[in-house]
Computed example of a mutant assay.
Amino acid sequence: MPEASPDTIPDAELLIIGVTSPLLVGLYVDGHLVQRYERREKTSSALPAILHDVRYRYNLKALYYARGPGSFMAIKVTYVMAKTFSIALDIPLYASDAFAFNENRPIKAIGRSYFVKSDGEIVIDRRCDGVSGSFSLPLRLDRTLFSQENEPLYILPAV
């Protein structure tokens, strides 16, 4: 498929929530969600197809992603793809922790453990009574939730 001219396609921003299944990707125009992608297959299969589709239909101005905590591999793949896109398209990459997209509910870790956020600190709680909150794409992109500190947030339990 030939590349479209940047002045013939709309400007957009992309948000990727790839910390667990399903993978959620939202496309935002003027800060409003205009397209939603939800995929249950592996991030390594789903995200390249979504990025390819978006790349030729929109002029991406910025990328945003949930940097963790969550599935180590899903976070790693999401980061590598988002960072690569950011460099290739010369656009900024911003990140936020995943709690911003699940109403600050516990996030499944390993076994009966959960990641929890309390007083701004993320820890693993092995006694958490809460059930993981599901993730959702916001209808409006709140850029204040994100920072340029965009390296993955890996919180791994001791083995």
Rank of each mutant, 00 (worst) to 15 (best):
K83S: 07
F85M: 12
K76H: 11
R127Q: 15
I87N: 09
G130I: 02
V25M: 05
P92F: 14
I16M: 09
L15F: 04
G31S: 14
E3R: 09
E41M: 10
Y94W: 06
S132Y: 10
L14Q: 10
Q35C: 10
S5C: 10
R127I: 05
L139A: 06
L24D: 06
L139H: 02
A158P: 07
C128W: 06
F135H: 13
I75P: 06
R67D: 13
A46H: 01
Y37D: 09
L139I: 00
G70I: 06
G133V: 14
A109N: 12
F101M: 06
S136G: 11
A62F: 00
D90M: 13
D30Q: 05
L153W: 06
I9M: 03
R112F: 05
F115K: 12
D119T: 07
P2G: 00
E13H: 09
M73L: 00
S132C: 13
M73T: 07
V54S: 04
L139S: 02
A49K: 01
P92Q: 15
R127M: 04
S71V: 09
V159N: 14
K61R: 09
L51A: 04
S113C: 06
L63W: 11
D11S: 14
V34E: 07
F85Y: 13
A82D: 04
D11E: 15
F146W: 11
R55M: 00
F115D: 01
P6N: 01
K117S: 01
N150M: 00
T20H: 00
I155T: 08
Y64R: 03
T20V: 04
V54G: 14
Y28I: 04
L93N: 01
R36Q: 12
V19G: 10
A82N: 05
E151M: 05
Y94L: 15
S45K: 13
I110N: 12
S136P: 03
L156I: 02
Y65R: 03
A82H: 01
D11V: 10
V77Q: 02
I75H: 04
I75E: 01
S134T: 13
R140G: 00
R143D: 15
L60R: 03
L33K: 10
I9K: 07
N102H: 05
L156G: 05
L145C: 01
I91C: 11
E103L: 08
F135P: 07
A100Q: 13
G31T: 04
F85V: 09
V116I: 15
I91K: 05
M81V: 00
F99Q: 10
I107N: 06
L24H: 13
A95Y: 04
R39W: 02
P10A: 00
P48Y: 00
G120N: 12
R39Y: 07
S71T: 14
R36F: 13
Y37E: 03
G18L: 10
R126M: 08
Y56G: 04
S136L: 05
G111R: 15
R40K: 15
L47W: 02
K108T: 11
Y65C: 05
P92M: 09
T144V: 06
